[in-house]
Design a protein around this nucleic acid. Sequence first.
DNA 1: CTGAAATTGTTTACTAGGATAATGTTTTGA
DNA 2: TCAAAACATTATCCTAGTAAACAATTTCAG
Lengths: 159, 159
Amino acid sequence: MDLAVNEPLTEETADLRDLADSIGFMARLAQVHTYETFFEDLGAYGLRPGEFSTLLLIGRNPGIRQGMVAQILRIKPAHMTKLVRSFEDRQLVERTIPDHDRRSVQLSLTTSGLDFIEEHRSAFAQHEINLRSTLTAPELRTLMQLLRKYVGFDWEEES
Amino acid sequence: MDLAVNEPLTEETADLRDLADSIGFMARLAQVHTYETFFEDLGAYGLRPGEFSTLLLIGRNPGIRQGMVAQILRIKPAHMTKLVRSFEDRQLVERTIPDHDRRSVQLSLTTSGLDFIEEHRSAFAQHEINLRSTLTAPELRTLMQLLRKYVGFDWEEES
DNA sequence: CTGAAATTGTTTACTAGGATAATGTTTTGA
DNA sequence: TCAAAACATTATCCTAGTAAACAATTTCAG
């Protein structure tokens, strides 16, 4: 059982069986890589990935219910409440209680919120370009399609 | 500006531009899907994905330095310390201070740790099968290869 | 119809996971 | 031998998750 004074085991020499072949582990690496790139590209703007996505989604869908935003972005409703409050504090998002269902909350961007998105849209586009930099265009299309299939996204590519 | 009494905007009818085409967002969905499946399949065993990976990696590489485990699994060293302590408390992992560098910590599985892995290896394999269930074998190979390329993994498929 | 029970949408209170920054030790290098 | 670097740990904090509570709406038995 002498495992003592052998090689020091680097990232290259370690035995990565069970991991390198695990789709679950690769999904984690992809997520970590995405986060790191996000903070390099957009970290200076004071929002995290989930917050950025939330603003984009509300911008595209004014009046969308808060719970629907949570469901689409896979954010827990309880956490969504906190995000929305912080957006309100920063004057980026408005909450409206609709008459037809006074339990629910409808969200839309304020003028500042719209400005924020417009100001950072090109930075966000550049971020996506950076994320894709290691892939060719066909590879990217294949990867996106397979990821959709992996997560069980219904919408198949319409031919 | 009447966005009031229109459609209620479901997950199908919402405008998902900026998101559906975002590789970053898809990476998040993949990660969430992986987590959910993990807890369905292996949640009953009391370990989370990162803990499971840690045990597997140590099992394959007895004597590996703690910091190397952190680096490979993309876990912060400070957090690794807590994980290792909890493994020690549960008698799954042993820490050794090697003579040749007494700053570092070498990790290996205890007998219970080895037992734990052996007992759950087939469940872990089944979990991977479940994760892959929406993909064909060639699709899976392509996906893994593209994910490696996406995250900047050096090792290309040797032909 | 009417009112109680169940459901839906959100919020609050609590807890835990994981990140950052600073510290302690040992080793390396000038 | 002293300064800098490397490895791990500690202390602190913040993000995000779970469970319970609250309020409004819908369902359904009578």
